[in-house]
């Protein structure tokens, strides 16, 4: 069924964007392309609009945090061409302290909540998003829960002190 090969997609992307494509690799069965942050939206738009690649479905997106890397924050997007069953993952990283990305809500309305989720968990801003506010957590929450430094456990627990659990 699948007539789009990873090579074809990489070639097309390289021709179109040149040095903006930082790396591309097959991770298990998934083509993963790392893109410079400033052209990530153009790449996604190209994948969406290109008649042959036709990645018309946004499967998912999520934020990433690697505190040990120089470019510690990142976004991951997964696109899908359901006709040819071709999937591609786009990753992008940034070293900014307050990372910001371009919104995809004008391409897919489904990006709306996923971007709000990324904002909620990681504090990423999305330029052009219609309603950039927390979605899952309380508005009063301080900090960004999925960043690695955020503590998992509720800091106000009284019953789990060291006396009882020996931690």
């Amino acid at each position: 069924m699948s007539n789009i090969t990873a090579e074809l997609a990489i070639e097309k992307l390289n021709n179109q964007f040149g040095d903006q494509i930082i790396s591309s690799e097959m991770l298990y069965d998934f083509l993963t392309v790392t893109v410079a942050r400033k052209s990530v939206k153009d790449v996604i738009k190209f994948l969406h609009d290109d008649a042959e690649l036709n990645c018309h479905f946004l499967t998912t997106m999520c934020g990433l945090h690697y505190p040990d890397q120089a470019e510690q924050f990142g976004m991951m997007y997964q696109l899908h061409n359901m006709v040819a069953n071709f999937r591609i993952r786009i990753k992008t990283f940034t070293s900014d302290a307050e990372p910001a990305f371009e919104t995809l809500t004008d391409i897919w309305p489904s990006a709306n909540w996923m971007e709000r989720e990324a904002y909620d968990f990681f504090g990423f801003r999305f330029h052009g998003h219609p309603k950039m506010k927390r979605i899952l957590n309380m508005d009063s929450l301080e900090g960004w829960p999925l960043r690695k430094e955020f503590p998992l456990e509720d800091p106000f627990r009284a019953d789990k002190d060291d006396k009882m659990f020996g931690r």
């Binding site: 991770l27 298990y28 998934f30 993963t32 499967t59 998912t60 999520c62 991951m76 997964q78 999937r87 993952r89």
Partner: peptide, 17 residues
């Protein structure tokens, strides 16, 4: 490594990245 796997859940594509 990095892996994505999806199954057809009760409501649709349930994916694990």
């Amino acid at each position: 490594g990095e892996v994505y796997h999806s199954v057809e859940g009760g409501n649709g594509e349930l994916g694990f990245y």
